[in-house]
Write a protein that binds this DNA or RNA. Structure first.
Lengths: 207, 207
DNA sequence: CTATGTGAATTTATTCACAGCA
DNA sequence: TGCTGTGAATAAATTCACATAG
């Protein structure tokens, strides 16, 4: 048990483990070895054991890991043990897909607020969420929502970020294709789906 | 000039550099220093210079990098110098957003084929692309399309992958929330948008 | 003077290999 | 015997610091 100097890569992998654990639970398993888990994911078993060892002794020697218990531990580490409400800014194509995405629930996320600048969209409902004008972003403070997803055009991304930070948001998942500046206490993770595609040709043989 | 033992992380950053370079070109710049570029991205300048140094001497001492030239070099490294056609499998919420996403063009990608299993969607057009039945996936071989994006439910992901690989696809961007198995010659990059959100709470202070 | 390019130093992450427990 | 947990060894990536060129 160390809880110090945790590799970032370990944190990145924990949700992958969690997803695989929930999946193998669905299939009726109650416990799993690092070996078996590694096959679900495509890493090696030593990596998995090492990753968990940073946080405690979760397994049973000779047996493996109890799935329910391990999921609970991962949730605790990732601070997902309390369900989190999330705001969405930008209800375009990508934003709409994000709202509809079923995969958030397994991590305890619930998108409960949505903002857009387009008057035609405001007051419309999508998945039971009423789209509000971006001028209402400050209301996130009262609602105690401190996670947000940004899916707006590049030009608007920094402005929306500033508004979110001012409203008390401390974690941002950024789908806008640009780097955004935030205070040190705020964490941003940026996803640009085109950039991930862009490094694929490098790895594949011919044209 | 080495071209050997290139860090994976360097490859991951090249599209980020390219995006920033194209952006600063839009703003009227013709050349840029590693220092200035680093401010666009949030890394340090030594990292940038080191990354480029793996591939050649692209800069001019005392001046910086010519933007047009550097973009051309990055495109060549990433094998993006020839425009690439891409197939999409799964035209649901996420797939539709992917088709509509404007960011692919800057890397020379063009989504020119789309497949779905839902009879209601087949033959419909989306962004000028006719949606075809997944049984038509083998036609990708004749069209010489070897990149694909998968955005189908988890249950279908492996089956669609197998069909794509059989049709000659060698690079897959996988949005389905699961690990998929492919032959060694095929490269898969998986994005699960929920997993990226899932590691955000770990980094932010309170609930 | 300014900014690149790069060996060397350092930090971070992965893998090995095995002691020790159920 | 089977599988975990972990120091030690190795590998990978980043940062430093400076010689060198325009």
């Amino acid at each position: 048990m160390k809880y110090r100097n945790i590799p970032n890569e370990t944190i990145r992998r924990l949700p992958i483990y969690m997803r695989a654990l929930l999946f193998s639970k669905e299939q009726g398993r109650q416990s799993i070895s690092s070996q078996d888990l590694s096959r679900f994911i495509g890493t090696n078993s030593a990596q998995i054991r090492k990753d968990f060892s940073y946080f405690g002794d979760f397994g049973t020697k000779g047996v493996g890991y109890n799935i329910d218990n391990l999921v609970k531990e991962i949730k605790k580490i990732l601070k997902l043990d309390i369900d989190k409400r999330v705001a969405l800014v930008g209800v375009g194509n990508l934003g709409s897909a994000v709202i509809a995405y079923p995969g958030f629930k397994m991590f305890g996320f619930d998108i409960t607020a949505a903002f857009d600048i387009d008057p035609k969209k405001i007051s419309r409902k999508i998945k039971n969420i009423v789209i509000e004008n971006i001028s209402k972003i400050p209301s996130l403070r009262d609602k105690e929502i401190n996670l947000a997803i940004i899916a707006v055009p590049r030009q608007a991304a920094q402005e929306m970020t500033d508004a979110l930070v001012k409203a008390g948001v401390t974690g941002i998942l950024n789908f806008s294709p640009c780097y955004i500046t935030v205070p040190k206490k705020v964490k941003v993770i940026t996803i640009d789906i085109a950039m991930d595609l862009a490094r694929l040709p490098y790895y594949v043989p011919a044209s």
